[in-house]
Design a protein around this nucleic acid. Sequence first.
DNA 1: TATTGTTATACTCTATAACTATA
DNA 2: TATAGTTATAGAGTATAACAATA
Lengths: 148, 148
Amino acid sequence: MAATQPGLEIDTGPLQGLVGYAARRASMVLFDSFTQHMAALDLRPTLFTLLSLIGANPGITSTQLCTELAIQSSNLVGLVKQLQDRALIRRQPHPCDGRAMGLHLTAAGRALLSRASQIAAQADRQATAGLSEAEVRKLLSLLQKIHH
Amino acid sequence: MAATQPGLEIDTGPLQGLVGYAARRASMVLFDSFTQHMAALDLRPTLFTLLSLIGANPGITSTQLCTELAIQSSNLVGLVKQLQDRALIRRQPHPCDGRAMGLHLTAAGRALLSRASQIAAQADRQATAGLSEAEVRKLLSLLQKIHH
DNA sequence: TATTGTTATACTCTATAACTATA
DNA sequence: TATAGTTATAGAGTATAACAATA
């Protein structure tokens, strides 16, 4: 007999009531949906996030991105380099701070972001297909309350 | 003048309406709270999850854990080894499948899980302190709808 | 043949420390 | 002295492929 009996229910024990566990599992579902939908554009969630923020905030600096996304500046370097190597962004000296570089989308970056935004919205809708529109809005609002 | 002006608002652009982005950011807050509260017990979220599932399902196998948590079996090996090295679990031959090993908590594992469960609940409450009890229940329900 | 568990490997993400150039 | 950005490095998390033992 096989050890794994498909019908057997697993008790999640003390994990059941934890928002942290539920949020992590839901994030995995959303992440998988995003990755599958975005495969053709070769954009991981992190790169899409960066592209979105640079697109919406032309001239934003690495430090500002780090603060907004709560990531370490040392970890941002490679990500920005990837976007630059793919010619999706360009770096310009900051007008009033010689240490900083402002980040801007290229035309290719704008085009990719436009397509990627639509795909990300589709991936999001698919992963939340079991929820009504009102539930999605409520969920967004509750998650944002935790973040801010 | 510094490039980063603290008062300047960042536009999150197309990320604003994405449940995936909101869930990831909320997960980060919950993860940080968990890590801080659990530092004394030296339990990462993953190890706590494993300990919880083994505690609630004595004799559970690696394959069952992998299915439940949606992780690869090759990645589970090291995690189980850590728990075993810390004498929190023991492995017993499965009664009716010579290939499988049933996982069980030791007395030390039960004691640690008991303390850790309380701390995890505290961490969860702190990260969701901005929500009412009804909102937390609603949030849990919506997140679980996405997962299942 | 299929499944359980394992090793090896590689890529991503994350965290820390040390460094440079400029403010 | 503090800040913007970089390099190097190490620890987790995650993915695939290949394998031995057993079903």
